[in-house]
Each structure stands twice: as C-alpha cells, then as structure tokens.
Amino acid sequence: MKNLFGLLLSLVLGAFIILALNNTAAFPAFGEVDLADRVSEQYFTDGNVAEVGSANIVTAIVVGYRGFDTLGEVTVLFISALGVAIIFGEKKQERLDLKFKPNFMLRVGSRVLFGMILITSIYIIFHGHLTPGGGFPGGAIIASAVLLLYLTDDRFRSNVKGFKILEGIAGSLFVVIGLLGLVLVTSFLQNFLPAGTVGDLLSAGIIPIIYVLIGLKVGSEISGIVDNFLTEEESA
C-alpha cells in the first residue's frame, strides 16, 4: 500500500515535470537553444575571451567568472571530509585487512600503475584551461590512485597527516590569490596576471594556478575520505 502510494506520487510528479517542458523562450525545446537569448553568449565574445584567456570556456566560467562560487564549493567538500573524519573518530586507527594475501607481482604492478595514473592526473590538472578536465577530475584521479594502492597492498597506509597539511596549504593559497586580486586590482579573485595567448599552456593568468591548487586540495580531501573508510579503530 505504501509502495503504491509512493509510486503514484512519483508518477504524478514526473508527469508534472514533463508537462512543464513547454517550448517557450524561457525554456526552449531540447536541442533548439539559441545562445543569443542566454547569458552564455557573452562568454564567447572576443573581448571577454581575450580578457580571460582560457580556451576552455567551462573552465573560464568555473574558475574565472564564478571563482567565488568554486571557493565555496571547495569549502563544502572540505566540511564534508571533516564530517567524515569526525564521525569515524579521532582514536588510533589501523587499516582493514584484505581478504587475500597480495603477492609480489600485484604489489609491484600496482605501484607502476600508481605512477602512470598520477602522471595522467597531473596532465589533466595542468591542461584544465585548454582541454576538458581540470582540478576536480584530476583530484578524483589522484584519489583513485591512492585507492588502488589501498586495495592491492595490505601494508599500505597513506600519509594522512601530510595530506591534511597539503590540503590546508592549497586552500589557504586559494584565498591568498583571491586577496591578491583584491589588493592589486579591484575585486576578490580577479585576474592580476597577463592573460597571454589563448591556447598556450602558460596563459589565462591565475586560472591554471587556482586549478592546480584545487586539484591538490580535492585529491588530498578525497584520499583522506578513502583512508577514513578503509581504517577502523584498533580492537586492542
């Protein structure tokens, strides 16, 4: 009975959403968007592109135009990582045992793969303003490399304290760069470096610097969450 009620409620809500998809100027039909009607049009104008200097417009929005929003987003991720750490307790922890004994090949092979995954993540982070990718996916890839070592080596335990220090430094530097924009130019997180040529590796002013910091911060935060989930309090 309760399931039927839930089903009915969900179906009615879905029907309402589908009925609301009318083809108006405010909400055009799928695939018939006219960018000229939208805010996004101005991101592609020559003056704005030359001022920001990022070839990837999504990165220009995330770190450039909406940089303050991204600072809040990183803060939310930091608070949730802090919450996970608090829930699991601050007592002395030891890692969970694997259900099998990893042999030599598995341990060495996973370490070789660890290096390759780390290089891929560094590439993705540094090219965030040129290609799809950036700090958030790159940080998630760093955390996946750490998770690989946890799953293939029964003695591995990442340097949690080092990750916390790295995360704190990266977050503080993000704010410091924002304040530099406030002092040197006019507003918080404003670009104070030359924008350079669109498409060069060293272009777009502070966007690559901030994205590297975001990558380090996200990578260390998610690695900390992985470590929290794969450890438990000492039974002694």
Binding site: L35, R38, S40, E73, L77, A81, V218, F229
Partner: peptide, 27 residues
C-alpha cells in the same frame, strides 16, 4: 555553434557537492 557552457559549469559544482554528501551519508 557552441553548446551552452553555463549548465556544464553548474553541473561540475553539483557533482562535487554530490560526492561530499554521499561520503557523509555513507559515514
């Protein structure tokens, strides 16, 4: 003709927040 980049940027934010809430919920 480019696709609209603004929804993609907003979804990037939403995905990260989703990771945070999922981790907290699982904890």
């Amino acid at each position: 003709l480019y696709v609209d980049p603004l929804p993609q940027a907003l979804v990037l934010t939403a995905i990260v927040i989703g990771v945070g809430t999922t981790a907290l919920g699982l904890a």
